[in-house]
Structures are given as C-alpha cells and as structure tokens.
Design a protein around this nucleic acid. Structure first.
Lengths: 204, 204
DNA sequence: GGCCTTATGTGATATTCGTCACTTAAAATC
DNA sequence: GATTTTAAGTGACGAATATCACATAAGGCC
C-alpha cells in the first residue's frame, strides 16, 4: 500500500513495510494513543491526519502538531524501544489509515536499512522544529495572533478557506477558554479578516 | 579524553572520538552557537554546562534546557547534515570543554557504529521530552511556579542550595521581566521558601 | 412548527502579568 | 571613604487573559 508516500526509503524497505506492517483504520475523533499509555508500535500515516496534543493535570489541552501522510509519531520510536509511556495524546482528525510497525521490526530495520534511520532522524528533527515553533508561540505571541496562525494552519491542511470547527475546539487547542476565543474572533470579524457562522470560520 | 562519560558507546567509537574530535574550551558566557548560524559541527560536552535557549524577534529569551557532560546539542546533528541553520542559541554557563565532531565524521559513524546511532537517538528523545516539559510549563504554569522549578533545576545542576544569579537573569530565562521576578521572589521569601541576597538566592 | 441541544455573544469582574518611574541598597572602583 | 555601577524593592497603572453568569441564536429532531 505505501508508495511515493515516503520517497526517502528504498524499495527493499518499502516492501518490508508492506508485508510486516499492520493496517488499521481510525474514525474521526478516535484516540490512537493516550498519555501515559504503553507504546507497543510505531504508526505511519497512510492517509488522513493525526492531531498530537499535550494535556496538563487539570485536563487542559494544547495542540502540538499534526502528523500527515508519510509521517510518523516519532515519540513512539524511541519510546517503544525503551518501554516508555507516551507523553502525548494522538487523535484522528478525520478518517485515517495507519500502518503499525512493531518495535521489534523497527529495531531490526535500523540495522538493515540505512534509509530507515534517515527516515526516523528526519521525523525527529522535523517534530523538534515544530515543537520549537510551539514554544515560541505560547511564549511570545498573544492569543489573537495564535488564533490566526492556527486558522491558517487548518486552512492549509485541508486546502479550504472554510474551516469547520467550533470556538470551543480552538480554545482547547490553544489551551485557553472559549469566551476569549469568541471575543477575539468577533473582533477579527469586525476587522474583515474572517467571517463567522455556526461551526464554520471563513478566511477572507 | 572521553571515558565513562558516554557509557552507551563502544570502545572503537570511543577511540575515534579521541582521534577525530577537536577539543575546544569555552569561557563562561561564551556563545557556542547563535540563532541562524550555520551548523558545521556536532559538539559533545566533556565538562561544564551549555545553556540552550530560544529568542524571539524582540530579543526576548527563553531557556529551553541545559546540556551536560556526555551529552550533545542534537539540533546540530541533523541540522549539520542538511546544512540547516540553527534555531537556537547555546551559551556556556561555566567554563566548558567540548569535543567538536565534523558532520562528515558523524555521517560515517552512523554507517559504522550502531552505538553512535543509539547515542543520537537517545539524545533526540531526551531533548524532545525536555521540550515537552518546557511547553507544559509555559502553557499551564504561573510564573511563580516556573521560578520555583527553575531554582530547583539550577540547584540540582550545581548540587548547592545557594544559587548564584540575578533577578534579571531569571527573568530572561523565563521570558518575563525583572520586576515581576523580584516581586514574586520577595513573596516567596515572605513564605520562608527562600532567602534573598544580592546575586544569590538560597533555597530553604 | 415547537422543543431541545449545542454554539455563540457579551457584560462584569478578578487575576496575572508587563511597564514606567522611581528609590534604596550593595558591591566595585577609585 | 567617596563615588560609581549594578542589583533589587516597590508603587501605580494598564493590558491581556480568565472566569462567572447569563442571553441569544442556529440546527437537529420529533
């Protein structure tokens, strides 16, 4: 099933993925990995999107990044190897197909396929940079800027200027409260930056 | 020079580090790597401490983590490979000795020494988890809690209950202002959690 | 079409934090 | 020991955000 999804790996490895990987389909909203869960496998996204977020003790959430087709949740990689528990939560944003790779297989491929190593390194690095972005945002940006940024991210993810979401959801992803988001969105509507309707925000 | 510093690598690689690595000494406060600089080598800390932080456009700073002996600044690893520029700043907290590894050597070792791969993976993972911690802190904790946490971290780093620092420095590391830090510290002193004097904070 | 659920709008108010404008104090230098 | 530099203390104020308490509206469902 995997093809030009992951260009950086070689053919032999690609066919190993085919035979050893275990296909799984997730519904929208289905939780792939919850915090503190044991990590048993490494998922590679075939289609759809995973949303990765962090929660604090009080249950407040914060979006970290999206995992798109051809990518993987790297935390699983090393974590799986060392019987670590997950520090993050991963939820399907839309119907999503993933290929589960056992930690044993991955471990073996590290020895056999240099391109597997490259792939993992690439993902680690990418996620690392994304995390740095998140740090920058929450440390230095005001919530209205963060909302704009999030809306743009969501729009580029789907390719639509219309974003199907609720204010509550945005608030959760930014770790703030619904009222704050509603107020700021209303303000942006006044500034003709967006148009609001129930369950939908349109970028202008 | 390297010895039981990095237990996870094997002897052959250890001697390669000896011969190929280039020793460098940094003074306190000396900048090893600034943001947007080209990455030419991977540093391994032999003694001392590197402080890694992020800056925003306005020049505000934020401490990300400390790099201790036997560890490395992983951003360099992949970044060096792909001629990336640095997203972070690294400064010596105290007189620090580092071993510089060229990206070419590292690249070769990836093929020759499995333990080098393990080492890099381990560091990536560790740094990743630390970054997640930072995200949690700035997203969910109030500044007084973050100050306490920082003081404890500094104390455990040196092994002393007396921390040599200024309020300004703490403010910088947390990305806030000096006045805020002074006020909150004063409050903690009232609560008998710490004792204050010029250039020094003592944990009680 | 009426009812119910869920989403959104909004005022009032409290906290937390950032900023400005100083003062005071400690240490460093001469 | 007087002077200068640097660190710390503090009041006043403003901005950003959080929280509470509702009112209103939009869609789904019977």
């Amino acid at each position: 099933i995997p093809k030009q999804l992951i260009p950086q790996i070689d053919e032999a490895l690609r066919s190993e993925l085919q035979t050893k990987g275990h296909l799984k389909k997730l519904e929208t909203g289905e939780v792939m990995l919850r915090e503190n869960a044991n990590i048993k496998a490494i998922p590679i996204i075939l289609s759809g999107t995973l949303k990765v977020s962090r929660e604090d003790q009080a249950g407040k959430e914060l979006l970290l990044y999206y995992v798109k087709p051809g990518e993987s949740c790297v935390m699983s990689f090393f974590g799986g190897l060392h019987h670590d528990t997950s520090k993050i939560k991963a939820v399907a944003e839309e119907p999503t197909e993933i290929l589960l790779i056992s930690t044993e297989d991955s471990n073996e491929w590290v020895k056999k396929y240099p391109s597997w190593i490259d792939f993992i390194f690439y993902l680690y690095h990418k996620r690392f940079e994304e995390l740095l972005e998140v740090v920058n945002e929450i440390a230095f940006q005001k919530i209205d800027e963060r909302i704009i940024h999030l809306l743009n991210k969501k729009a580029s993810l789907t390719g639509h200027k219309e974003i199907i979401t609720t204010h509550q959801q945005i608030a959760d992803e930014l770790g703030t409260s619904r009222e704050v988001v509603s107020r700021l969105l209303k303000q942006m509507e006044g500034d003709k930056k967006i148009a609001l309707s129930r369950n939908k925000i349109t970028l202008l």
